[in-house]
């Protein structure tokens, strides 16, 4: 550390009388921390504290009467052997893949299309965001009716092709498809706008140079747009991972606001499992342990995705 790297105010403060010197130091050393502290205070109150408290909860056994008993890691051991928990994990990961992969690809191509010059550009770009500002419950009500077994629009269209009515809430894969559609309808536009913002930061001259070198539009997309978009992509992928793995509202409203997720948990996600254990069976400890495992699942998912995205266009 050389003296020159210190802020000028500190250097100047050496020539000041002690009282003012102290105040000046306070100004330089303490003030920045004070200014950024609201975030950390809020994070501690609403992020760290619940996290620690949930961990504490997860070490106790609760029953309906509200009595508690220390069980150590007992809840975690029980969870790892609980078929219902693994069923929820499978559903969550399954729906996540089914929803997120098409969603991000679609968003990318949508963004690419929106990145061109055309009439009413702003209006059309904004309209992509419309699904996001609709209430989840309203979306779920509409989609629940579209995917109804009897008198549903989707089954009606399928019947034109001679297909039998699908019981969307009773069969596993169809239920995942219905919910993934719901999620994609809501989030594709949002991701497309973020991709679009990323695309606009790519310098024009790169494309111009490529065009002079004779690179086709498609080649430009793969060789310039995609690699340059990597930081945006990391953000979008991490965001979708967190959102996808904590999926709750869509599958819950899809089954009348019931966290069972189908008669045999065909589409019960881990988040629904947590709520069911905590607020229907009133086993807060078990729910807390499941919430921690969900947290781990998200960390693992985020890590895998991060490594994967780092390789995209990874010539550097």
């Amino acid at each position: 550390m050389s003296i020159d790297t210190l802020p000028r105010a500190v250097r100047r403060s050496r020539h000041l009388p002690p009282g003012r010197r102290w105040r000046s130091r306070l100004d330089v050393k303490v003030m920045p921390y004070t200014l950024v502290s609201p975030y950390f205070i809020l994070f501690a109150a609403f992020g760290l504290f619940p996290l620690a408290f949930t961990l504490y909860y997860s070490l106790y056994d609760y029953d309906l009467a509200g009595t508690t008993k220390w069980t150590g890691l007992g809840n975690y051991a029980k969870l790892l052997a609980d078929e219902d928990f693994w069923n929820a994990v499978t559903n969550t990961v399954g729906m996540f893949l089914l929803a997120t992969i098409p969603q991000l690809l679609l968003a990318l191509f949508l963004a690419n299309a929106l990145n061109k010059r055309f009439r009413l550009r702003l209006a059309i770009r904004m309209s992509v965001l419309l699904p996001l500002v609709t209430s989840v419950v309203a979306v779920a009500v509409v989609f629940t009716q579209l995917f109804a077994r009897d008198w549903g629009l989707v089954n009606w269209i399928l019947s034109w092709f001679g297909m039998d009515a699908i019981n969307w809430r009773a069969e596993r894969v169809p239920s995942w498809l219905a919910i993934a559609t719901m999620v994609d309808w809501r989030w594709t536009g949002y991701n497309a706008i973020i991709f679009l913002a990323g695309m606009q930061t790519i310098p024009r001259d790169l494309y111009e140079a490529a065009a002079i070198d004779g690179a086709s539009r498609r080649r430009q997309f793969w060789q310039i747009t995609l690699p340059m978009l990597r930081p945006t992509m990391i953000f979008v992928v991490l965001n979708s991972t967190i959102g996808g793995l904590t999926l709750f509202s869509e599958p819950t409203t899809f089954y009348n606001g019931n966290v069972d997720g189908g008669s045999q948990g065909q589409f019960q996600t881990v988040a629904m499992f947590v709520v069911k254990q905590g607020f229907r069976e009133f086993d807060y400890g078990y729910a807390a342990a499941a919430a921690w495992l969900l947290f781990l699942l998200i960390l693992i998912g985020a890590l895998i995705n991060f490594l994967f995205v780092r390789r995209i266009g990874g010539t550097k």
Binding site: F46, P50, V137, V141, G257, V275, F279
Partner: peptide, 21 residues
Amino acid sequence: GGLAAASALAAAALTAASCGS
């Protein structure tokens, strides 16, 4: 009624997420 139930449930989940029980 159904909507209210669903939103009540969502609200319950939110409270659960933000401040334990």
